[in-house]
Amino acid sequence: MAREKKIYPLAKGLTTQDTYAVLGDAEKFQKHKHAWKVWRTLKEFGCVAYPVAENLQRLDGSKVYLNLDQLKDKVTVVVPCLLPDKLKSLVSDVAAAGACKIWFQEQTWTQEYQLECDNSGIEVVRGCVLRHVIYSPISMRYLNPCYWHGLRDAKVPSKRFGR
């Protein structure tokens, strides 16, 4: 008998049932910076999450996609983890890939993106993915701003801590 996959709510209508593309670059993925943390966290939540970065072939055994075109109609949410100056055609790329939402991380949202999304019919969600993590009691949660900022946000049980 197959186990039913639990679906958890995330930010503003997003759930762990959505499929995600995490946009980063080789440095942000390889040096375990924000893009890598977001991608790993989404995978730990049980989400289907694809890393997207130029100049990177594989990441922790997973294929890395060169751009959103390669994920056409496979993702519903795009999570940019790059500053706006590195994402010139973000909204048009998201629309062309068939995604309907962009989950902007801290410092990636701009008013221009908001206007483009409004004109393209793409839903905007703002906030950090890491706010939805349940940290172990012994972890660095006391030093992690995402934990404190997301104290009352919906949380997804972690597989690492047996919850």
Rank of each mutant, 00 (worst) to 15 (best):
K101Y: 05
P51C: 01
R131L: 08
V64Q: 00
A97E: 09
R40M: 11
Q111V: 15
G121T: 09
L59T: 01
G127M: 00
S139I: 10
A35L: 00
A35N: 00
L90A: 06
P80K: 13
A96P: 06
I138F: 10
K74G: 01
H34T: 04
L59W: 13
V38A: 08
D25I: 02
F104A: 05
D73E: 13
P137L: 11
S89N: 15
R40Q: 10
F29E: 02
A97M: 05
G127V: 03
V125T: 07
P137Q: 11
K74F: 07
S92M: 04
G24I: 06
L130D: 08
V79L: 12
N67P: 03
R126H: 14
K31D: 02
N119Y: 00
D93Q: 13
M140Y: 07
V129A: 07
T110N: 12
L82D: 05
I134C: 08
Y65I: 02
H34W: 06
L68K: 04
K33N: 01
K43L: 13
L130I: 10
P51A: 05
K88W: 11
K31C: 02
G98L: 13
A99K: 08
V22T: 06
A97P: 02
G46M: 07
S139H: 10
E116T: 05
S92N: 11
D73C: 02
H32I: 03
W109E: 13
Q107M: 15
K33S: 05
